[in-house]
Design a protein around this nucleic acid. Structure first.
Lengths: 223, 223
DNA sequence: TCAAGAAGATTGTCTGACATTCTTGCAATC
DNA sequence: GATTGCAAGAATGTCAGACAATCTTCTTGA
């Protein structure tokens, strides 16, 4: 009779997910931009050693989710509007292309998934949970990107969106932004469902421009 | 009279450059794709401890320059043609945009730099040093990207180019590729110098298509 | 009030260790 | 002879503890 079978399932794999935990914490806005991350504190909170933590921090640094200044340690970068604009511009470039490709190649099954994620966002949009709004909207995009036929496009896009996730929560909180965002996303969906590549690009571009403007507004009012 | 001033200049900063050393080693094709990197060996070669090395490896992993499989350790990823194509496509998207923007905003001073880098490539092209060719060509692109007015575009592009650097050395070695590449780059330069945005985009797109085709040819012949 | 110095905190790095997992070569069996 | 199983070695994943270098902050003195 084996006494303790599977008492600790995946004992080592857990630590490897440190990056994901931290990334999620940054996404959800747990840390203020500009605030420093103290290694010893994080170690205690995550229950891992400093070497392991520092590995995770290096990954996040490479993803530009944190900054590590020599002898000052890691901190959450405060996004300037200049950089945010640049990110939005590149995002537009990628997302418009992805929407266009997606329109002409998505499978019926994935199209249903896309519709489902749109419904999820619709539900979130009627609530006041801006985190849920950002998450469901991200699902919508990621389905489009996953079906554009170019894994690199998807990967780069994900990296960029991650860096402005902080913003997006704020801009979603703007009066009426979630609803108009919903309308724009529905338009994108319709174009993709119709297989109209050109229209999908246009709808996607329009959505991005609006999102960018909303982000700017939320930033101006905050700071 | 200070006895030993700057005996060890930047004693701690040196280790921080481990990532750069490794990155350069990967660029120059020191490691075969698919080959494993043994931590203890690298530690000895670089003269650093395992924790420090592992931090550096995490950075490179996040940049997709190496792969780290759990319990198997780091290795050089072997680029499939599928992924390489995807990278070329995104690179085209970014580079065409950058060339267009650059045409309408580059300063006379930077334009001279661009011309200089073109001359450097011209010289390298007449030699058989394919590493020099790749390096000088990279300089040419990076000046364009640095003058497109979007730092993110530049950053993402750099990351992508790094991942296919292995290829580019091979394709440059193709008979006549360096010369035709030179002609295409000259064309791009002329368009930018003339401030013709549309033509710059077209020339850039043409160049990328040719480069992609050359890369495919070199890959087919190798494997 | 402001500047210089000291104490504390934090990072950068190392050594050493150990459990887990993978690889490889050998032996035993069919 | 080929295949399977096992065991030894190698390599990774993770940790604890330590120490110098650097930054921050607070105190003290001019």
């Amino acid at each position: 009779m084996p006494p303790d079978l599977n008492l600790r399932i995946s004992p080592r794999t857990v630590q490897r997910e440190t990056v994901d935990k931290l990334r999620l914490a940054i996404f959800s806005g747990l840390f203020q931009p500009g605030s420093r991350l103290i290694e010893s504190q994080l170690c205690a909170q995550l229950g891992i050693s400093r070497p392991s933590l520092r590995e995770a921090l290096r990954s996040l640094e490479a993803e530009r989710l944190i900054e590590i200044v020599p002898n000052r340690g890691p901190s959450i970068p405060s996004l300037s509007w200049e950089v945010a604009t640049a990110i939005y511009e590149v995002r537009e470039l990628l997302e418009v292309e992805a929407a266009g490709r997606c329109a002409s190649r998505i499978s019926p099954e994935q199209l249903r998934e896309l519709e489902k994620s749109l419904s999820a966002f619709e539900e979130a949009a009627s609530s006041n949970d801006s985190l849920a709004q950002v998450m469901t909207a991200a699902d919508f995009y990621s389905i489009i990107l996953a079906n554009c036929g170019n894994p690199i496009l998807e990967e780069v896009h994900r990296g960029l969106v991650a860096r402005i996730s902080f913003f997006r929560g704020r801009s979603m909180s703007l009066e009426g932004r979630a609803q108009s965002s919903l309308a724009e996303m529905k338009e994108i969906f319709e174009c993709i469902a119709a297989g109209d590549e050109k229209a999908a690009r246009k709808a996607s571009k329009n959505h991005l421009l609006k999102a960018k403007a909303a982000a700017k507004m939320s930033m101006d009012s905050e700071m």
